[in-house]
């Protein structure tokens, strides 16, 4: 199997699952009251006590090494747009797993972003 495809698949699946786990953990922790170093560190430490955060970090580590692998084979300008498929997966995952209501307007925005990224991808190939 093509190495680029394997890396790409791992980035998409492990990356999205990881981000959803982290998002779920952060909803458990609650709002960060301020955007100051002490407040940020406190929120991060609180998040470390949530199981979802550790599961998220595991998946994101897998995605990170897959990203390094793909970046060793392809240009950044190809790899980054290629991973944009995660916008659709993410919006769907947010709706299904986090109970977020993704409105029609937001879906249209997500769709436009995907079309734009696809054009960027096609532009690279041209």
């Amino acid at each position: 199997m093509n190495a680029t495809f394997v890396y790409y698949f791992l980035i998409m699946v492990a990356g999205t699952v990881g981000e959803l786990c982290v998002a779920r953990a952060m909803k458990t922790v609650g709002d960060a009251k301020q955007f100051r170093p002490a407040a940020v560190i406190r929120v991060v430490l609180q998040a470390m006590g949530v199981g979802w955060m550790w599961l998220g970090l595991l998946f994101m580590t897998i995605a990170f090494f897959a990203l390094l692998g793909m970046l060793s084979l392809e240009n950044v300008s190809l790899v980054v747009p290629a991973t944009a498929l995660s916008y659709a997966v993410g919006a769907l995952g947010g709706q299904i797993f986090l109970g977020e209501r993704v409105t029609l307007t937001r879906w249209i925005g997500v769709l436009l972003v995907c079309v734009g990224v696809a054009l960027v991808f096609l532009g690279r190939a041209a």
């Binding site: 960060a32 995660s86 919006a91 937001r106």
Partner: peptide, 13 residues
């Protein structure tokens, strides 16, 4: 931090 303020499906796009 931003995920604790807003939805994942908003922040990502």
């Amino acid at each position: 931090v931003v995920l604790s303020w807003a939805d994942y499906s908003y922040v990502q796009p």
